[in-house]
Design a protein around this nucleic acid. Sequence first.
DNA 1: GGCCGCATGTAATCTGTTACATGATTCT
DNA 2: AGAATCATGTAACAGATTACATGCGGCC
Lengths: 189, 189
Amino acid sequence: MKRTPLTIEWSLLGLIHQQPMHGYELHQRLSNAEGLGLVWRLKQSQLYALLSRLEARGYLSATLESQEPRPPRKVFSLTTSGRDAFLEWVQSPVSRGRDFRMEFLAKLYFAHLEGKTTVQHLLERQREACQNWKAAQEAEADTSREAAPYQWLVYQFRIGQMQAMLDWLDTCEQTLFNLTPEDRENEPS
Amino acid sequence: MKRTPLTIEWSLLGLIHQQPMHGYELHQRLSNAEGLGLVWRLKQSQLYALLSRLEARGYLSATLESQEPRPPRKVFSLTTSGRDAFLEWVQSPVSRGRDFRMEFLAKLYFAHLEGKTTVQHLLERQREACQNWKAAQEAEADTSREAAPYQWLVYQFRIGQMQAMLDWLDTCEQTLFNLTPEDRENEPS
DNA sequence: GGCCGCATGTAATCTGTTACATGATTCT
DNA sequence: AGAATCATGTAACAGATTACATGCGGCC
């Protein structure tokens, strides 16, 4: 019954982590591309449904704020368990390539708000994960080299996507910290 | 009510296009990675549900083949409308980057079976689509260059993924036709 | 008068996932 | 005796998408 939230829900938790908010405000922040709007697109109706679910699962608690004569605002805050879960999420890399496009971009956004060390740690761990995954695909590709051209192409595709992600992780580091690639090699930790 | 099939369903139509088949056989072909198994993973139960839907939508027709004492096989063939729809699908590029990973790989597989000209046409059209999409993202990226670093990174990510796809399309052409890049430049059409 | 902004939702439908159900035969 | 193969499905539930519903106040 109480399963882990899925990708968009984490972003909602992340926004509320910055500051308690009601549904309408969340919707505006997501829509008015302050960055995140590029990644998520969410209908109001779905938003309210997600918030109810997160409340039911104990990640959020709500207080009503009367606004006569408008409908009262339902202001959500993170519970302790919600905050813990979010902080855990924001620091852990995504494990499958297909989760990169939306979920990792969201993590990066929030990790950046958490501070320099959090982003750097996330980037480092994600790089490792991608490298492992890429290596596994390369091993598979080798076994199908001449025998099965279609399969080989599928692996090549995945490897290419992974390599692009790895390159992009470097770009992130350089952009967010104004580092050159040499800096990263010479000053690890 | 009669909307277009979604990605996996096209693959089922494609397999049946090769030769009429019953559900169990389809499941085997998809599982026993003859290439496609790498891309799709499908539970038996869902497979039968999809087949029923395709039949209801008029893309498939079924005939029963008694196999005493086993349950009779339900052998599906493409209807005319099913065949037309499939051939249209297999020749048209995917329009969004996120559809590349599964849907385009499936198209490639079936286009290859249709023959050399079909693949080549598909690759060419897909390359164009990717280039346009990439150019659009590059234009967006320029507008956010210094102002919004996170947005810029999002665009860079997409551009990188797109570039990797374009490179991979070249790899496909070289692998399937044993062409060097120069050949493609010198002998277009 | 009509549309936009504020602020909340419910309901219906579609799709995907998981588990369960049946029942004979052949392999170990 | 128990597992795998052949061959079909149904049922229940979770999640996403879309449409619909309400109601006031301010702007053009």
